[in-house]
């Protein structure tokens, strides 16, 4: 028996919005420590890794490890039927071929359930090595989304250059070029507005705007985003999900042909 309850459907709606741009379907691996999802986008360029810890749920029970392959388009149709303040419960029997989403209104007067067919997905799992990154940037998630959106207009690639002083985002193309520099915050009044840089070595890397823009669909989950970078290894874009886990995106830097 698997059962996971969240007191507000908003979190699950936001999680789904954060991954469905990149993934059409994905396997939710459930065990007694929580729910894990790891999947590459269709073109195998980026990797999405989602962790929802058992202790972050209002109720969580998972008697046996369970892998639930879901069509995220179908899941989105179902999640659209939940109000933000509904309680949402996901339920499945052991070895089931369906999952049930149950929504309960705050006053308990409306209860809906949606049963969705599960899929057998043959997905490759990747081992992500522990890495000490040369630069780690923490910045407002909204600001990062804005920069990716703005600079995408000027080119299909975004260059991120990180030094001790700050981080510079650049794009160039037919129109011309664009640069946005963010200085490291000197006095932190509001932590969620701060730009913090932990640098071992400066790095300059080039990334595809298209994927960065997809990653920023996770922006509503949190105030701050963390970018971890080293030369010649994938960028990690991490959004923490308050009290329950995180979604991380991995994207390989573009390289000279």
């Amino acid at each position: 028996m698997f059962e996971a309850r969240l007191s507000s459907a908003t979190t699950l709606k936001k999680v789904l919005d954060a991954i469905k741009d990149l993934l059409n379907e994905a396997t939710f691996d459930c065990n007694d420590s929580g729910i894990q999802l790891q999947a590459m986008d269709n073109s195998h360029v980026s990797l999405v890794s989602l962790t929802l810890r058992a202790d972050g749920f209002d109720k969580y029970r998972c008697d046996r490890n369970l892998s639930m392959g879901m069509n995220l388009g179908s899941m989105a149709k179902i999640m659209k039927c939940a109000n933000n303040d509904d309680t949402v419960t996901m339920k499945a029997q052991d070895n089931a071929d369906t999952v049930v989403f149950m929504f309960e209104s705050q006053n308990q007067e409306k209860v809906s359930d949606y049963e969705m067919k599960l899929m057998n997905l043959d997905q490759e799992h990747l081992g992500i090595p522990e890495t000490d990154y040369a630069c780690i940037v923490r910045m407002p998630a909204m600001e990062f989304a804005r920069i990716c959106r703005d600079l995408s207009q000027f080119g299909e690639s975004l260059v991120i250059c990180c030094t001790k002083e700050g981080v510079k985002f650049s794009a160039s193309g037919d129109v011309g070029s664009a640069n946005i520099k963010l200085a490291q915050t000197t006095s932190v009044d509001k932590e969620e507005e701060a730009v913090i840089i932990e640098m071992q070595e400066p790095v300059t890397l080039t990334f595809a705007c298209r994927y960065l823009n997809s990653f920023t669909k996770a922006t509503p989950l949190t105030n701050q985003v963390q970018l971890s970078m080293s030369m010649d290894v994938p960028l990690v874009v991490e959004y923490r999900i308050q009290d329950i886990g995180h979604v991380r995106y991995y994207l390989a830097p573009k390289i000279e042909d």
Partner: peptide
């Protein structure tokens, strides 16, 4: 010209 490598080039397939 820069090209986009697959993420599979960086992580081992388990």
């Amino acid at each position: 010209r820069k090209v986009q490598p697959s993420i599979k080039n960086y992580f081992n397939i388990l």
